[in-house]
Design a protein around this nucleic acid. Sequence first.
DNA 1: TTTT
DNA 2: TTTT
Lengths: 171, 171, 171, 171
Amino acid sequence: MINKVILVGNVGIDPEVRAIESGVKVARVRLATTERIFNRQTNESTEHTEWHTVILWRGLADVVDRFVRKGSQLYIEGSLRTREWMDKENQKRYTTEIIASDMKLLGKRSDNPAGGQSAGQGGYQPQGGVQGGYAAPASQAGGYAQPAAQPVQPAAAPVVPPAEDPDDLPF
Amino acid sequence: MINKVILVGNVGIDPEVRAIESGVKVARVRLATTERIFNRQTNESTEHTEWHTVILWRGLADVVDRFVRKGSQLYIEGSLRTREWMDKENQKRYTTEIIASDMKLLGKRSDNPAGGQSAGQGGYQPQGGVQGGYAAPASQAGGYAQPAAQPVQPAAAPVVPPAEDPDDLPF
Amino acid sequence: MINKVILVGNVGIDPEVRAIESGVKVARVRLATTERIFNRQTNESTEHTEWHTVILWRGLADVVDRFVRKGSQLYIEGSLRTREWMDKENQKRYTTEIIASDMKLLGKRSDNPAGGQSAGQGGYQPQGGVQGGYAAPASQAGGYAQPAAQPVQPAAAPVVPPAEDPDDLPF
Amino acid sequence: MINKVILVGNVGIDPEVRAIESGVKVARVRLATTERIFNRQTNESTEHTEWHTVILWRGLADVVDRFVRKGSQLYIEGSLRTREWMDKENQKRYTTEIIASDMKLLGKRSDNPAGGQSAGQGGYQPQGGVQGGYAAPASQAGGYAQPAAQPVQPAAAPVVPPAEDPDDLPF
DNA sequence: TTTT
DNA sequence: TTTT
C-alpha cells in the first residue's frame, strides 16, 4: 500500500547511465548512508555505512548524467523493489534496489563535482529536483540524445497543484 | 526543497467537499493523530491528540466524498502550506494546512463508515489510493458531476514506472 | 546519513518470534505492499505486490508476538540493512531487510486476528505503537519470559518531549 | 498515530537559542523550502517558498547553537504541533510549528557558516546528527552552560540497535 | 565505493 | 528571511 524510502547520503562511485532499446534513459547510483552508533553499555561510538543501489529513469537519469558524480550528496525518495535473476549456476538470486521517484542535489553549487563544466549550458540546479513518472512528456525523457545542449527541463508537476488559487479555498 | 508530511490518524468529523467555480472538487478533512507520551521522570503516561487540517483536490477529493467519514482511519502524504487571511478586524491571520498528494483508506472494508452503501457502484477500494496532481486526466478530476455511477478511477501513475520491463535493466 | 523506510501493508504469514541467547526477543514479519499501476499508453491497470522482510527487536517483537498475525495491517518505520551470508555452496549472498524502529497496528481492534483472545490481559492497543531502540528499559525488552500476564508496556518516549510546558516557549 | 514531517531547506535568519528556567536549551529556526511549480496549461514555471518554524530541544538546540546560521542547509525530521496563544486583544491565535526529532547539517563542511571558527574544539560534524528525546542523558542536554569547550556529544542511540550481532539473526 |  |  505504501512502499517509501527516503535517503540522504553520498555517492560512492561515478554513476552508470545507459539507455534501453526504446531509447529511455536509466541511471544506477551507489549511495552510502553512514550512521554513528552509540553503545550505551560500552560507552563507545562506532560507525556503520549502508550501501544502497538507486535506479533512476528518464528525467532523473538525465540529471544524474549531467550533475551527479562520485562524492555528490543526494536526497532520494523512492520505493523498494526486489528483482529476481539467475546467476551463472542457474540459481535464483535476489537484488533489492530503490526505484527513485524524486532526487535533489544537496549542498552548494560549488560542492558539486559536475557543476563546473556545464555552466552556461543550462547548468547546475541543485534546488530544482526532477520528479520521475509518466507525468514527464516523452520528449523530455528522450533527451539523452542531445545531452548538454538543451536547458534542464523544468521540474515535473508539483505534488498537488491546486486547480486555481490556493488562497481561495471555499471553506 | 523537501516539504513532506506523513500522517496516520482518524477523521474527527464528516469531511466537507465542495467545488470551486471552475468545477474542480476540493475536500477538507480534520484528522487526529494521538500519541502516548511516557514521562520518564514521573513514570506516568499521558496522551496528546494533535488535529490537522488536510486539503485534498480533484481525484482525492472525490474519493473523500465517496468513502471518508467521521471515524475513518487514513494515511495521508502531503506538504505544509501556511495561508494568510484577514479576520473580521482586518488583521492578518495564518492557517497551516496539509495539501495532500496521496491518501489511503486504512483498515478493512467493513471498518469504513461509507463502505456499506456504495457497494456495487464502484465500491470501496481501501487498497487503491489515488494520487493528486496534474497527472490525473481532467476527465477524472471533474467526476464530481456524476458521482457514484462511474467506477472508481484507476489510481494515478505509479511513482516511477520503468519505461519497459523492470527486470531488464541494462546494468 | 538518512536511511528511512516507511511501509503500510499486510502481513503475509504468521510472524516468527524468537529469542537470541542473551534472551533478547526478535521478530520477523513478511509484509506485502500492493500498488495499482496505470499504464497511460495502453490505458490498462495492473497490480504489483512487493514483499518486504521486516525485523523487529525487543519491545516491538513483543507486540508482534501478542498482536500481529497473517492478515494484520501494519505501519512500519525503519531502515534498510543488507546482510551478507554464505549459502550451501559457500557463495556470498545478500539479503536486504528493514530493521523496524516503529510499528503501529492499523484498522479497528476487531480487524486484528490476535485481538480477540488477549482481551483482559493487557489487550490490543492499535493506537499505542512501541518504538524500538535503547530507549526502552531492559526490563521491558526482556518481557518475553512472562508474555501475556503483564500489561502492554507504555509506549517509548515521544519523538521530542519538550523539557517543560510545550506552550511555554521562550520565543 | 503517525505525525511526521520531513524538510530539506535553507535557514532564513540566524537561529534564536534560549534556555528555559530549568536550564533546558531550546532553539527556533526559520527554514525555507522552495519548490519549482510547472504549470502544464501555460507552460510556465514559477517558484513557491514555504517558511517553516522549527523548534529544537536539548542536544539538537545545542548543535543549532554551534553550527547553524542563516543560509545553512538542513534536513529536519519532526512532528507538527499547533499551539494556542492569546494576542494583545485577548483573542485566541494558533501557531503551527515543527518539533524536531532529528536534524542533519547538509553539504560540505566548508559550506557551513559556523564551520570555520569552531574547528579544533569538537568541531563541525555535518554527518553526525543528534536525535532529540528523553534518550539523551540530561548531562548532554544541559551542556549550554559550557558551550564550545566540550566535544560534540556522540549521536543519540541508533534507530533500532540489535541486541547483539545484526548478522546473527535466529531466522 | 562516499562522507566526517 | 534562505537558496538557485
